[in-house]
Design a protein around this nucleic acid. Structure first.
Lengths: 161, 161
DNA sequence: GAACGGGTACTCGGATAACTATTGTCCGAGTGACTGTGG
DNA sequence: CCACAGTCACTCGGACAATAGTTATCCGAGTACCCGTTC
């Protein structure tokens, strides 16, 4: 099981965006430069965030990205789902119905849900719930507690050309 | 985030193996036939289980696989880790230290753990804990409750040549 | 009749190939800002 | 001096290529059984 690398990038960018003034847009190139990431690919990830309304984008000069809604309304689950997709990690292909297994168990469990899928879904639900309980604002606060000067430093770096 | 398809196969096979007598070995070909799966590939997955001691294997005529330990001592996490690997889904590449970001935040958070990685690790830990709390025996019982005749049917099918 | 040795068929296990998904790159469409001109 | 139109540079967004990971297949090594032979 593996999460796409872009999730890490996206979360960092969202935190950074939460620290610059909410009405200033930051180009993907600048966001990428801050962490020394490939610009075009980060842009692609930001697009994905844009499709979900997590960030708002604007083209042209003075264009770029800004948060689409307050950082306390953006959860880690939102970001992960936007970048990595919201499909279940364990997807039941129903092999219990295939081949002799299907004929043997018969229609007894044709209607009952797959026990295995249920177990994995439950675990995954906990995972989702956990991520959904953490907002970008929460993380930004936590970072600030560990390094109080960080927000100001970041804001200043993004403000200067 | 996506779990390999082999995880589903492996769990099903473990449950089936828990229902045949513990000292009979079942060839991969037979396990595969039961669910109409590609034999060689399932064999590969069973190899992975074997490396972790989840199943024991024997070559030659009358060879095959059997559970390596009692089904109540095999958790879904064990199986998932054996097939899919036990690496973290979210792996922190430390981009907060790359480029200007690293110079700006300085050594203030050089020693502090990455907040983002922590958040994802926590969620993942819950996922793991959940899967580690469910054994093959648990699932087998649940299936039996839904379909009481299943164990006997499965045992009989695997016994006959 | 019993023990032994060779052959055989069967099974796992790892090496190899096909395919899919992720990662990375490029270029066009759109947009706002700037500049020069005319009133 | 102010308004306006044309041009330009900048940015996103999606289309296209390279790379890595997963899925599938194949063949060799090893093992237990079976059969024929010998004591």
């Amino acid at each position: 099981m593996k999460l796409r690398e872009g999730v890490e990038w996206a979360v960092h960018c969202c935190i950074n965006l939460s620290w610059v003034s909410p009405d200033t847009t930051v180009p993907a190139a600048r966001l990428a430069a801050f962490h020394d990431l490939p610009t075009a690919y980060l842009n692609k990830q930001m697009n994905a965030l844009g499709r979900e309304g997590i960030v708002a984008s604007r083209s042209g000069p003075r264009g770029g990205f800004r948060l689409g809604r307050p950082p306390q309304d953006i959860t880690l689950m939102d970001v992960a789902a936007a970048i990595d997709g919201s499909a279940q990690a364990f997807l039941c292909t129903g092999i219990r119905h295939h081949g002799p297994a299907g004929r043997i168990t018969g229609q007894a469990d044709a209607r009952t849900p797959c026990t295995i899928a249920q177990a994995f879904s439950l675990a995954e639900l906990e995972w989702r719930r956990n991520l959904a309980g953490r907002s970008i604002a929460d993380l930004a606060d936590a970072v600030q507690r560990a390094n109080p000067a960080a927000p100001e430093h970041v804001r200043r770096w993004f403000d200067q050309p």
